[in-house]
């Protein structure tokens, strides 16, 4: 039974259910959202069908510019932090015995799947005055009095790095496992120290992987919506928080939809870039 093109209508049978479900419940909602982004908002949280650009025109405000700028900055900072720690970590992990790898992978998957609500709650506890890390500093004599470390930018940044780190490792893992070990062995034989071999052989060989990972983690961080809310001040809100806020609490669906469409376009452009970088890698 070789792979062959479908010939009769019945051959398409298995495709009906998945194609129908994905079309009705993903493509149509997506299209609905795009349509709503052009609708006119009415008082009291309703909206009427129209074709106006008002919702997009609001992007030109200083407030929106600030939120967008901060979101992008935060996502870049998180992506860089994760990749900088993630590359040496994943590299060492991929060279560890299989049993150790599996233990780490299970732990990373468990943290990755942990609800954002729970990650936010865990960090707000760790950064709290009564149960937090500052109590440890006081005990060690580094601090006079325990204090709360939230809300602050540092708290948002730390928790988002925590959330994105397991994702970063899992994105890097396949590429690093497949990296030819003879590359570093050759460098070591020629007298390079392990650290030098890592920076002069491993990192350059992975240039495109690193770029693609940076972009993937950037998009992942862009999607964080609860941590800035739970651990930051209103000026630390990101585009994702603003979309949720407009949709649920301000009942301004058209504006929320317009921002979501904008976020899609940014993400798609970046995914395209990541795929392109990935293809460059394969071409080599």
């Amino acid at each position: 039974m070789r792979r062959e093109p479908p010939q009769r209508l019945a051959d398409y049978g298995p495709l009906f259910f998945p194609a129908g479900m994905l079309t009705v419940f993903f493509v149509v909602p997506f299209a609905t959202m795009i349509a709503v982004s052009f609708f006119q908002r009415e008082q009291g949280g309703f909206y009427t069908a129209a074709f106006v650009f008002d919702n997009y025109a609001r992007f030109l405000s200083l407030f929106f510019g600030k939120v967008l700028g901060f979101s992008l900055f935060l996502a870049v900072a998180v992506a860089v932090a994760c990749v900088v720690i993630g590359i040496p970590f994943t590299y060492l992990l991929s060279r560890s015995p299989r049993k150790i790898q599996i233990v780490w992978l299970v732990a990373l998957l468990s943290i990755l799947s942990l609800s954002e609500v729970m990650i936010g709650f865990a960090w707000s506890t760790l950064f709290s005055r009564t149960a937090g890390i500052t109590n440890l500093f006081v005990w060690l004599g580094l601090m006079v009095q325990p204090q709360a470390l939230t809300p602050s930018f540092g708290a948002v940044m730390t928790a988002m790095t925590y959330q994105a780190f397991p994702y970063t490792v899992l994105v890097l893992y396949p590429a690093l496992v497949r990296l030819d070990p003879t590359l570093t062995e050759a460098a070591r034989t020629l007298g390079a120290s392990p650290v030098k071999a890592f920076f002069t052989v491993v990192v350059p060989a992975l240039r495109n992987t690193i770029l693609a990972t940076l972009i993937m983690v950037f998009i992942f961080a862009l999607g964080s919506y609860l941590l800035p809310q739970l651990l930051g001040r209103p000026q630390h809100w990101t585009l994702s928080v603003l979309i949720t806020d407009q949709a649920i609490y301000q009942s301004n669906m058209p504006f929320a939809a317009a921002m979501a469409v904008f976020l899609v376009l940014v993400s798609l452009a970046l995914v395209g870039l990541a795929l392109y970088a990935g293809q460059q890698r394969q071409a080599k």
């Binding site: 079309t23 909602p29 998009i219 994702s240 949720t244 949709a247 979501a260």
Partner: peptide
Amino acid sequence: APWANIFQLLGVAPFTLPPVITALGLLTF
């Protein structure tokens, strides 16, 4: 059936995009 890969892409899309987008799309729907 190369054209059927479009459904594979559709299946992967919700997970690749920021989740708030899928959430909002489904809410409006």
